[in-house]
């Protein structure tokens, strides 16, 4: 009979998950956590070093930037921007990609042909150039960044999921569901989607890491969010000029991006391992 067996939780899942959680909390509760408003200037404290460096003060833990804005507060508010973009854009890309992947993988034939060729053409554009082109056309703003990421990255989902759908489609239980009169929609929702869901969730987590990077790149070249919205990429761009005098202003937002993307990737890998049906098969006999 079933016996509850204690299994060590996946290390990547735990570490990645808690770091992701931390960044998420920073983003959601930014106004309460951040010591200052991100755009408040204190012109007497320009380019102050962080608290652990020489001349740092406890008033500005991570120091200030060239306009006298508190780096820590800007980073916390930057997390808000990054997380909004990561969550909404990835979800959007997932929905769009998954929709076409299921269509292509399930129906095959000419539907598959059209969708697959479209994806291939789409993928032949360099993604960053494509998103910059889109922003140029759409204008800047968080919603535009999100739209650009969705339009660029849905292909990633579509490609990977399509083959996953094809595997599930070949299973006899799908044929059986058709034989007892399930409609195509029902077969996809009830029989195929549960099989592709683990992959979907894993891809979503990895995509969130990618979205953070894309958002940073776009804000770095001032094609992302408007200048009054704090974003990590923007902070890097701002700190670039005083890089030699105040290296911390540059290093800290880079570290924030690095940690966030790494933890999303760890989390995604951990999810993949945990949701793998081959692991689920160990549910006792």
């Amino acid at each position: 009979m079933m016996r509850k067996k204690f299994r060590l939780p996946d290390l990547g899942l735990v570490i990645g998950g808690s770091l992701v959680g931390l960044v998420l909390i920073c983003g959601v509760f930014a106004p309460w956590i951040a010591p200052y408003h991100p755009n408040d200037q204190e012109l007497l404290y320009i380019l102050a070093p962080p608290v652990w460096a020489d001349g740092g003060s406890a008033a500005h833990l991570f120091g200030t930037d060239s306009l006298g804005r508190d780096t820590l507060s800007r980073m916390i508010y930057g997390a808000r921007t990054a997380m909004t973009v990561a969550a909404v854009a990835s979800l959007g890309a997932m929905l769009l990609g998954a929709f076409f992947a299921h269509l292509a993988g399930y129906f095959g034939g000419w539907v598959d042909w059209i969708i697959s060729r479209t994806v291939e053409v789409w993928l032949s554009f360099p993604p960053v150039v494509l998103s910059m082109l889109l922003i140029t056309g759409l204008g800047i703003g968080i919603d535009k960044v999100i739209l650009a990421i969705v339009l660029v990255d849905w292909t990633r989902f579509c490609r990977v999921l399509r083959s996953e759908v094809q595997v599930a489609r070949g299973q006899d239980y799908v044929a059986f569901a058709r034989l007892i009169g399930f409609s195509h929609l029902r077969v996809i929702m009830k029989e195929i989607l549960p099989a592709t869901l683990p992959m979907l969730i894993t891809l979503l987590s990895l995509q969130m890491g990618i979205s953070v990077v894309v958002e940073a790149i776009l804000s770095f070249v001032a094609m992302g969010v408007p200048s009054d919205v704090p974003a990590w990429g923007q902070m890097i761009a701002d700190a670039r000029i005083d890089m030699y005098g105040a290296p911390w202003g540059l290093a800290l937002p880079i570290a924030a991006i690095f940690v966030t993307v790494l933890s999303f990737n760890l989390f995604g890998d951990g999810l993949r391992r945990t949701l793998d049906p081959r692991h689920a098969a160990n549910r006792g006999t």
Binding site: D172, L179, A195, P277, A280
Partner: peptide, 23 residues
């Protein structure tokens, strides 16, 4: 039309592994 056969004809598949949805 296909619907009229659904309840009358059934198939038992060869490979039970693939014929039963593991979820």
């Amino acid at each position: 039309p296909r619907e009229r056969f659904f309840d009358k004809v059934q198939l038992v598949f060869q490979d039970p592994q693939s014929a039963l949805n593991p979820r």
